[in-house]
Amino acid sequence: MTRKFLDEAYNHIGKGIEHFYNDWAATYETEVGENGYVTPARCARLLAAHQKDRSLPVLDFGCGTGLSGLALRAEGFETIDGMDLSAEMLAKARTKNLYRSLLQIQDDAPPPFAQGDYDAIAAIGVIGPGAAPLDVFDVLLSKLAPGGLFVLSFNDHALEDPAYAAKITDCVDKGLLRVLEQEYGPHLPARNINSTVYLAEKL
C-alpha cells in the first residue's frame, strides 16, 4: 500500500521535518493533486491583483516541489526564487525550470537574504502544524521593505489554534502591516480542509 503522507503531515512536529518531506517528495504532487490542492492558485491570484509589475522578484518560501511556483508563473510572475528545507523537494522543483534560483535552507538558521531583496514573499501552505512554526511569519515579514507584499495561507489545522489568526491581528494593531485581502476558501477539497489566504502590505 502506498504511504499516505497527508495522514501524518499535520501531526509531524519538531526537528527532522526535512526528512519527512524528503520521503514525501516522490509522491507529493500526486497525493495533494488527488485531494484537489488549490491554495497555490488562490494565493497567486491575490498577489497578482496587487503586484502590477510582475517582473519584480518574488520569493517562494517553502517552495516544495514547485507547485506554488507554477501558480505564480501562471499569473505572469517572471522572476521567482525558491527556498526549502527539503533537498528532494527542491530536486523536483528544479525540473520545472521555473525558478531563477533554488536554495536549500536550514530550520535553525535565518533565511539567507536581506531586507528588501524581494518585492513580494509568498509562504503558501508553509506556516502551520506539520510545517514551519508561527515565528517564521515574523522572520519573513521583517525581510520585506515597507511597501513589500506578503501572501500566505493558514489552513484549518492552523486556524484551530487562535494564535495564528491573532498573529495577523497583532501585526495590524502594531502598525506593522495592512491586510489588503483576506479570503477563506478551499485548500484540500477532497478532505474538506479549507484555508484562509492573506495578502498583506508591509508598513
Rank of each mutant, 00 (worst) to 15 (best):
G36D: 10
Y37P: 07
V38A: 14
V38P: 00
V38C: 14
T39L: 02
T39K: 06
P40E: 07
A41M: 08
A41V: 09
A41T: 07
R42P: 00
R42H: 11
C43H: 06
C43W: 05
A44Q: 06
A44M: 08
R45Q: 15
R45D: 06
R45G: 06
L46W: 09
L47G: 01
L47N: 01
L47F: 01
A48N: 04
A48Q: 04
A49K: 13
A49P: 02
H50I: 00
H50A: 12
K52D: 04
K52M: 03
K52Q: 12
D53E: 10
D53M: 01
D53W: 00
R54F: 03
R54N: 07
S55T: 15
S55Q: 12
S55E: 12
P57S: 08
P57E: 03
P57Y: 01
P57M: 04
V58M: 00
L59G: 05
D60K: 06
F61E: 01
G62D: 04
G62E: 06
G62R: 07
C63Q: 10
G64M: 04
G66S: 09
L67D: 08
L67W: 05
S68L: 02
G69P: 10
G69M: 10
L70F: 00
L70G: 11
L70R: 14
A71S: 14
A71Q: 10
L72V: 10
L72G: 10
R73Y: 08
R73M: 04
A74K: 13
A74D: 14
E75G: 07
G76R: 11
G76D: 10
G76Y: 10
G76T: 12
G76S: 11
F77M: 05
E78C: 07
T79C: 00
I80V: 15
D81C: 11
D81S: 15
G82N: 04
M83N: 06
D84I: 11
D84H: 12
L85N: 01
S86G: 11
S86R: 09
S86K: 11
A87N: 05
A87P: 02
M89R: 10
A91D: 08
K92D: 01
A93P: 05
R94N: 12
R94H: 13
R94G: 06
T95C: 02
K96R: 15
K96N: 04
K96V: 01
N97I: 00
N97D: 15
L98N: 07
S101Y: 01
S101A: 15
L102C: 11
L102I: 09
I105C: 08
D107Q: 13
D108I: 05
D108N: 15
A109S: 13
A109T: 14
P110H: 08
P111H: 09
P111L: 14
P112K: 10
F113H: 13
A114N: 14
A114T: 12
Q115Y: 01
Q115N: 08
G116N: 09
G116H: 05
Y118A: 02
Y118S: 03
D119R: 15
D119G: 11
A120V: 03
A120E: 02
I121E: 02
A122G: 12
A123K: 07
A123P: 08
I124A: 12
I124P: 03
I124T: 15
G125T: 02
G125S: 12
V126R: 00
G128P: 11
G128L: 09
G128H: 11
P129K: 07
P129V: 06
P129Y: 14
A131Y: 13
A132S: 12
P133L: 09
L134M: 13
